[in-house]
């Protein structure tokens, strides 16, 4: 019995040693449903496990996995599928590429001394290159690729000649079917400027009036006209000018 246990332990140790010899992608933690693809089958991903170049990783709802890739941290958020496209580390360089099929990831890439570091996140429509930064990247069929950079600067590019540096309060958004990305400060602009419709009514009010206007406002053939008629007019404004004392 003792001999069997010894042989079993030795075999397991050998398998473990072989699997970790060249691997540099370590599973730091998992939460909920996280799996990696081994051949045609999906298998549970476990903390402390190492995965090889070419491996696909998927997370389920309310789940996440954190990978340590050559000392850089990649957090795979819920309902995300990635593939480790490249994982290479030499004395002078670290070269990694992560394919993001769908979902979102957060990457924190260190700048390590003189080590030439390349860490790319590749989606079906764009590639972002991270150096000494943190970035959130998401990709999906409805909203396309979005990149936000809480720390540092990221370069986003694609085969159509798009090349943008993203950082600070700017964000990169390339929607499906578009060749060019939205303006980098689009989110900021949309949050700061209120959309106005004729007659000072909101989009909802306009839609409502166009659909039900004659039922909502009695005795007016043109419901929007009712609002327009009440926009103009004279008004008096009292202004007190107070000059500072010299």
């Amino acid at each position: 019995m003792k001999t069997i246990y010894t042989m079993l332990f030795a075999s397991l140790a050998l398998v473990f040693a072989i699997s970790t010899a060249n691997a540099a992608v370590l599973v730091v933690s998992t939460r909920g449903e996280a799996a990696y693809r081994d051949g045609a089958a999906w298998k549970p991903l476990a903390k402390g496990q190492t995965i090889k170049e070419g491996t696909m990783v998927m997370t389920g709802v309310n789940s996440q996995a954190v990978l340590n890739i050559d000392d850089n941290l990649l957090t795979i958020k819920p309902l995300t599928t990635i593939k480790v496209l490249k994982n290479s580390l030499t004395k002078s360089s670290s070269d990694n590429a992560i394919g993001l099929k769908n979902g979102s990831v957060n990457a924190r890439v260190k700048r390590i001394g003189t080590l030439k570091t390349r860490f790319n996140i590749v989606t079906p429509v764009a590639t972002s290159s991270v150096r000494g930064t943190e970035q959130n990247t998401s990709h999906g069929p409805a909203f396309g690729t979005r990149i936000q950079v809480p720390v540092g600067l990221v370069n986003a590019s694609n085969d159509s000649g798009v090349n943008r540096n993203v950082g600070g309060r700017s964000s990169f958004s390339l929607r499906p079917g578009n060749q060019r990305p939205d303006p980098l400060l689009g989110d900021l602009r949309n949050g700061a400027i209120t959309q106005l419709n004729p007659a000072n009514i909101t989009g909802d009010e306009q839609a409502g009036l166009e659909t039900f206007g004659d039922q909502l406002v009695d005795n007016f053939d043109d419901a929007l006209g009712f609002y327009n008629k009440n926009v103009g007019g004279a008004a008096s404004v009292k202004v007190d000018l107070i000059w500072p004392n010299p």
């Binding site: 709802v61 309310n62 958020k77 819920p78 309902l79 995300t80 769908n102 979902g103 979102s104 999906g140 069929p141 409805a142 909203f143």
Partner: peptide, 12 residues
């Protein structure tokens, strides 16, 4: 994939 993207956004 659109459904998965939607559910991920909603959960977030």
């Amino acid at each position: 994939a659109e459904l998965m993207e939607l559910v991920a956004r909603v959960a977030e």
